[in-house]
Each structure stands twice: as C-alpha cells, then as structure tokens.
Amino acid sequence: MTEYKLVVVGAGGVGKSALTIQLIQNHFVDEYDPTIEDSYRKQVVIDGETCLLDILDTAGQEEYSAMRDQYMRTGEGFLCVFAINNTKSFEDIHHYREQIKRVKDSEDVPMVLVGNKCDLPSRTVDTKQAQDLARSYGIPFIETSAKTRQGVDDAFYTLVREIRKHKEKMSKDGKKKKKKSKTKCVIM
C-alpha cells in the first residue's frame, strides 16, 4: 500500500485542523484551538488504489514558523489553505509557496490551493482571484467548507493525484537520464 505524506499549511484560523478532522473523523470542530502540530493517518481508496494518507496539520501562528522547514522537508505534497473571508490569509499563500519551493529546492512541488469556509456569506476573496492565482502557479484550486464537508475529500484526493503525477514524471525523467548515460565512448 502506497503511503502519501501530505502537509496542510496556511495562516492561523483558516480551518486547516477543521478540514483535516472532517476528512479523518467526519465531524466539524467549530471551536478554535490553535494547533502546534498534529499528525493523522487514514486509509482510503483513490482511483481504485488503496493508500495510506499521513497528514500533518501544522501551526499557522507566526511564533511556530521555525518548525516549518522541518515538516516541509518531509512532506510530499501540500494543501495551501486560505479562508475566503480573510484576504490576508490569501496573500500569505505566496509566502508559504515560496518557502516550500526553497526548502524542497524545487520549482515543481505537488500543491493544491484550497479556499476554505465557502459556506460563509462574508467572502472577501473572489473565486476568480483564487483561480487566477492557482493557474499562475500551475496547481489545482478547490473551494471547501469544513463545516458542510463540501470539497473536503476532493481537496485531499486531488493532492494525492498531483503527487502521483509528480512521481510518474520524475521516474520518466530518471529513465531518460539513465538511457543517456548508457551511451559509451570508444577510443581507438
């Protein structure tokens, strides 16, 4: 069974824990209790493949930012979460993405942009803004509501699919490099 290491990042209060708990335990946590770091595991079937999701729910508070490099190193894919009623959390996505790329030393890291709290009427981040940002990053965008469960499975499952595509691409690139290195030079 394939294991996928997913990391949920975003500013404090955007609903990272609520999304994760909704996926794992099928219930909505409405009281806000700032996370330092929590880890969850769940076995699911995605596109006919049974897999184990190892999900790291991270601290959004700035005082825990020193811990970010460590979990970013171990993560295979990242859910970059903002709240649709919090423009600052949307603007912060850029910083999370840049930090992930720096730590992973790669421009090509599996990510999904997630606009959470889409059940709320007080939207300050337009869907088109988020779609445009995701398009500019070359990553999928999904709106979710941890409260109603809308888009929750889709967000995590899409990230797994992005990781699969990335692994497939990397193995193809690896095979191309191996083929090239088999060419021999004969000096007579």
Rank of each mutant, 00 (worst) to 15 (best):
A155M: 13
T158A: 14
E62Y: 03
E37G: 15
S181C: 10
E98Y: 01
R135F: 05
G15E: 02
N26D: 09
L6E: 02
L159R: 03
V109E: 03
L19H: 06
Y32M: 01
A18Y: 01
I187N: 11
D105V: 04
Q25A: 15
V125I: 09
D38C: 00
T74S: 09
L23H: 13
G115Q: 10
R97K: 05
G12E: 15
Q70I: 04
Y40C: 00
A11I: 12
M67V: 04
T74F: 04
Y137R: 12
K16D: 05
K182W: 05
Y157L: 07
Y4K: 15
H27L: 15
E162H: 06
H27Y: 15
V8C: 06
H166E: 06
A11F: 14
L120H: 15
I100H: 12
A18L: 00
F82Y: 07
L52C: 14
Q129M: 06
R73Q: 08
F156I: 06
N116L: 09
I139F: 06
G15P: 15
P110V: 03
A66D: 09
Q99A: 15
R164N: 09
Y96F: 13
C80F: 13
K104A: 13
P34F: 00
D119I: 06
P121E: 13
S17T: 01
R97H: 14
K42Q: 08
K169A: 03
D153H: 05
K172F: 11
G60A: 00
D57H: 01
E62H: 03
A83I: 04
I139G: 10
V14Q: 08
Y137F: 07
T50P: 13
R73A: 10
D54H: 13
I55V: 06
S122W: 07
G60K: 00
D57S: 00
K104G: 13
D173V: 06
D105M: 15
I21P: 00
E37F: 15
P34I: 01
P110C: 04
K16A: 01
Y71E: 04
R149Y: 11
V103D: 05
V186M: 14
A155N: 01
G115L: 11
G48F: 05
Y96V: 05
E49N: 11
S39P: 00
L6H: 02
Y71N: 13
A59K: 00
D30Q: 08
F28Q: 00
I93T: 10
F82L: 10
M67K: 11
D38E: 00
L133V: 11
D119Y: 04
P110Q: 03
M188L: 04
S181H: 03
S89A: 07
I142V: 12
C118S: 10
E49D: 09
V160D: 03
G174W: 03
F78I: 03
K101F: 06
K101Y: 15
E107A: 09
A83H: 10
Q131Y: 03
P110S: 03
E62N: 04
T124D: 11
S17M: 01
R41L: 08
V7D: 01
Y64P: 01
C185P: 12
S17E: 01
R41N: 04
S65R: 12
I36E: 00
K88C: 12
V103C: 12
E98P: 03
Q99H: 12
C51Q: 14
T183M: 09
R97L: 15
I24S: 01
R149V: 06
P121L: 07
A155E: 06
Q129W: 12
K117H: 15
V103L: 09
G12D: 14
L6G: 03
Q61L: 10
M188C: 06
D69I: 02
I100M: 13
G13K: 10
D54Y: 11
D126R: 06
S17L: 01
M72I: 03
Y32H: 11
K178C: 05
G75M: 02
F82S: 13
Y32A: 01
G77K: 03
T20H: 00
V44W: 12
D30Y: 06
G10N: 01
E37P: 05
D154H: 06
D173C: 15
R68H: 02
R123T: 11
F156A: 03
D126L: 07
S145L: 03
I36F: 01
L56Y: 03
F82N: 03
V125N: 11
D132L: 05
N85I: 13
Y40D: 00
T158D: 03
M170I: 10
G77I: 09
N116G: 08
Y4H: 10
A59T: 03
T183S: 06
K167V: 06
T158G: 07
R123I: 07
I84H: 13
A11P: 07
C80W: 02
Q25G: 15
D126P: 09
Y40W: 00
A134P: 04
S136T: 05
D33P: 00
V114E: 01
F156W: 11
D33I: 00
D173E: 05
I187F: 09
S145V: 02
E162G: 09
E76V: 12
D54K: 14
V160S: 11
K128G: 07
T2I: 11
Q61K: 08
P140H: 03
D69G: 09
F78Q: 01
Y71A: 14
Y32E: 01
D153Q: 07
L52H: 09
V45D: 11
M111P: 02
Y64Q: 01
D33W: 02
Q99I: 14
R161L: 11
V81C: 09
C80D: 04
R164P: 03
S122Y: 07
K16W: 01
V112H: 01
L19K: 11
S65I: 07
F141C: 10
D38R: 00
A11T: 14
D126S: 07
Y71D: 12
D154Y: 05
D105L: 09
L113S: 03
T74W: 08
K42F: 11
D126I: 05
C118H: 09
V9W: 02
L56G: 02
R123K: 11
D33T: 00
V109D: 03
I36V: 01
K101N: 05
G60N: 00
V114A: 05
T20P: 00
P110H: 03
I46T: 13
L133C: 09
F78L: 02
A59H: 00
P110M: 02
G174V: 06
E49H: 15
E37L: 15
K128N: 07
V14D: 11
R161E: 03
T127E: 07
I163F: 11
K165G: 10
V114G: 01
V14K: 14
V29K: 00
L19D: 14
G48C: 10
P140A: 04
K42E: 05
I55Y: 01
D47I: 02
D154Q: 07
F82P: 02
T124E: 10
K184S: 05
S145A: 15
D119F: 03
G60T: 00
H95L: 06
K104P: 15
I142R: 10
G10L: 01
Y157R: 12
K172I: 04
P34N: 00
D57Q: 00
Q70G: 13
R135K: 15
D119E: 11
D30I: 04
A59Q: 00
E31Y: 03
A66G: 15
G48D: 09
F78P: 02
V29E: 03
G151C: 09
E49T: 11
D108M: 13
S106Q: 08
V9M: 09
K5E: 13
F78Y: 12
N85D: 07
K167Q: 05
G12F: 09
I100C: 07
D47F: 14
G77L: 10
D132S: 06
D57N: 00
E62T: 04
K42A: 04
Y32D: 01
V44D: 12
I187R: 11
L6Q: 15
G115E: 09
I24K: 12
I139T: 13
I36H: 00
V186G: 09
R135T: 09
V9H: 05
E76S: 07
G151D: 03
G13W: 14
I84C: 12
F28C: 01
V14M: 08
T20K: 00
D153A: 08
I21K: 00
K172W: 04
K128D: 08
V160N: 06
K182G: 06
G174P: 05
T58D: 00
P110E: 02
V114L: 09
N86E: 12
C51F: 10
Q131M: 11
E37Y: 15
L53G: 10
D108H: 03
S106Y: 10
K128C: 06
L159Q: 03
Y137I: 09
A18C: 11
K165M: 05
N26G: 12
Y96I: 13
A18M: 12
M170A: 15
N116K: 05
D108K: 13
D126W: 06
E107F: 07
K169N: 08
L113T: 05
S122K: 05
H166Q: 10
E31C: 04
Q61W: 01
G115P: 08
E62M: 03
